[in-house]
């Protein structure tokens, strides 16, 4: 077993395009859940409309990629509005179910035969992001030190991804320390109190849903660009669960929480994947587990991690556990 290469895999995972993309989507979720207390379990729906905004605009309508990104973000605004109208007046737990249901409804429709002329149905769309990669300033080849290296394509997506992470985090930072952010946090703590002080809680929740949703769509668009393809079934509720794991790992309601969470999450996941694969290859588990099961075991690990975090470190591994204990609900 080559431990160094397994470790290299892990380090690659923590800075790779996926980590940046999930960090972006988790920042959006942080606006919802971390700062406003909205139990949005349909964040994947915003990623889906962002991704398909790009894919459909380019592959189906032949528009430019950049128009496609704008279409994706526009779709996220529309989705936030139509999702918010029925659900934002509901109690938190109703909201969770309604949003996860909305995400599934959208997935069903995007994969349906009705939508096939537009979305490509179950097999989705491909090869729509060439203009993005034409801008790649890195000449083809591999870059890195030792076992940690990236091809020029990944490096380009990573660069753009992490720059976006920084810019979006800065925007969120400016917003949440303003009086606007103060109202959001007040809504998270107690929405009746905010209302009794003359705050239009519904409007603030809607603004939060739109902002976080658009950020999620940025993540979705980048995800589609990164793999040059979209398939509806990869936008299932489990993606949202990943995002919650990331957010809680890093600490919800903090600026660096989603970023640190995503880095650690992807390190653990890729490290563990690589470790399991080589352990299976070395025959450590006999017939008990084969290579095809590694994907499933990754989910077991994520689930277990989510449970342990929530039980023992609900404020995240860097958060102050005392702070969450104040939260008596």
């Amino acid at each position: 077993m080559d431990f160094l290469s397994i470790l290299g895999n892990g380090v690659r995972g923590m800075f790779g395009p996926e980590a940046a993309i999930y960090a972006i989507a988790a920042i959006g979720l942080n606006v919802h859940f971390g700062y406003t207390g909205l139990l949005n379990f349909g964040q994947v729906a915003f990623m889906l409309v962002g991704a398909y905004g790009v894919a459909v605009s380019v592959a189906t309508f032949g528009w430019s990629l950049w128009v496609g990104v704008l279409v994706g973000l526009g779709c996220a605004v529309v989705l936030a509005l139509i999702l918010g109208i029925p659900t934002l007046r509901l109690r938190g737990d109703y909201l969770a179910i309604a949003t996860i249901a909305a995400g599934e409804i959208l997935r069903y429709f995007y994969r349906s035969a009705y939508a096939e002329p537009l979305t490509g149905g179950v097999y989705g769309l491909r090869q729509f992001a060439d203009p993005f990669f034409e801008l790649n300033p890195f000449p083809p080849g591999r870059y890195g030190i030792g076992p940690i290296d990236f091809d020029s394509r990944s490096l380009w997506v990573m660069t753009v991804g992490w720059i976006l992470v920084v810019l979006i985090s800065l925007l969120v930072f400016l917003l949440v320390r303003s009086p606007w952010g103060r109202v959001l946090r007040a809504v998270r703590e107690d929405e009746l109190a905010a209302r009794s002080l003359g705050k239009n809680v519904y409007s603030f929740k809607m603004q939060s849903l739109v902002l976080g949703g658009v950020i999620g769509a940025v993540g979705g668009a980048l995800l589609a660009i990164n793999v040059q393809s979209v398939q509806p079934d990869s936008y299932n509720p489990v993606t949202t669960f990943y995002l919650y794991a990331i957010l809680i790992l890093g600490g919800a309601g903090t600026i660096f929480g989603p970023i640190i969470g995503s880095i650690i999450f992807w390190f653990i996941v890729t490290f563990f994947d690589a470790f399991l694969r080589s352990a299976v290859g070395a025959g450590w588990f006999g017939d008990l587990i084969d290579g095809a099961d590694v994907g499933a075991i990754r989910f077991v690990l994520v689930g277990l991690g989510l449970m342990l975090l929530m039980a023992f470190r609900p404020a995240g591994i860097l958060g102050d556990p005392k702070e969450l204990r104040l939260d008596v609900r």
Partner: peptide, 30 residues
């Protein structure tokens, strides 16, 4: 209904009405 994870001063400041900084775009520019 105290807002537990806001500081005392933030709790009180929240009560002020007509805050320009509570609008989305102005909020970005301190």
């Amino acid at each position: 209904k105290t807002l537990g994870r806001l500081t005392t001063i933030e709790n009180v400041k929240l009560g002020a009405t007509g805050q320009r900084g509570e609008h989305f775009l102005p909020a970005i520019f301190r």
